[in-house]
């Protein structure tokens, strides 16, 4: 329920039922050479009200694919439910998990199928490709998508994306003489960037906060390389091939 402001009531208006609302929060994903990190805060809000401090926005789809949804929460939950259903059918038909790039195309068709009554949801898909590289796909609500190295979406996109452009793509940075910028960052650096992004977004955006959920997908054979004891880390699955999926939960400020 949103409090009406007096301006909007000042003139009589034709009012129709509005089937959408905006539930705040922010999501973010970064791809490494052989890993992918997908994160989201856990606050769900409407207007100035916090509805709950824990409503997950990031979901495990397969052992190597994770989907983050942001926008209208009811549409988001329904969309994730339908994607999971399609992946289950695929598994029954083909006796294997759907590859990441195929999930990306599936999501595009599912979104575009609702072109004229869209799911009001921004999707970011992260995970490991068949060739073992870390990948991030980002979508708009009607299905336009591309593979990228990093993407932020949601309420604090305008705060986080420029930071990522600078820290991941090294935009507006000159490499030191005789050196060049790395094309992929190590996991430890990426995790620090993700955590810093969310603590900063929490400081400056009222719709971001409460909790942080970070999914980490590792390519086969790759280890955590000294990150095993990092606070809040929990292993979810290991595939037969040796791809591993972790989740890390942290607190964010609740004010």
């Amino acid at each position: 329920m949103i409090m009406p402001d007096m301006d909007s009531l000042a003139h009589p208006q034709e009012r129709r039922f509005n089937p959408y609302t905006e539930n705040g929060g922010t999501i973010l994903a970064i791809a490494g050479a052989d890993f992918s990190v997908i994160a989201g805060d856990t606050r769900q809000s409407e207007g100035y009200s916090i509805q709950t401090r824990y409503a997950p926005k990031v979901f495990r789809l397969t052992d190597r694919a994770v989907l983050a949804v942001n926008g209208f929460a009811a549409d988001g939950n329904m969309f994730v439910k339908k994607v999971k259903q399609r992946l289950e059918w695929y598994h029954h038909a083909h006796a294997k998990d759907m590859p990441l790039r195929a999930i990306a195309r599936l999501i595009q068709t599912m979104l575009y199928a609702r072109r004229f009554f869209p799911y009001y949801v921004y999707n970011i898909l992260g995970g490991i490709e068949e060739d073992g590289t870390g990948a991030v796909y980002s979508f708009d609500p009607v299905g336009s998508y591309e593979r990228e190295a990093c993407r932020a979406a949601g309420a604090a996109q305008s705060l986080v994306q420029p930071f990522l452009d600078n820290q991941i793509y090294f935009k507006n940075q000159e490499a030191a003489q005789g050196t060049s910028h790395p094309s992929h960052l190590p996991l430890e650096t990426v995790l620090s960037i993700v955590i810093d992004s969310f603590t900063s977004a929490t400081e400056r955006h009222i719709e971001v906060g409460d909790g942080l959920e970070i999914f980490i997908a590792l390519s086969k054979g790759r280890t955590l390389q000294g990150m095993e004891s990092i606070r809040g880390l929990q292993e979810l699955t290991v595939t037969e091939d040796g791809e591993r999926l972790f989740v890390m939960r942290r607190d964010l400020k609740k004010d």
Partner: peptide, 18 residues
Amino acid sequence: LLGTTYSASTLATGYGAF
């Protein structure tokens, strides 16, 4: 009415939410 769902240890609807 929008199909929005959530759970928490305390909940309130309408003016109670404020």
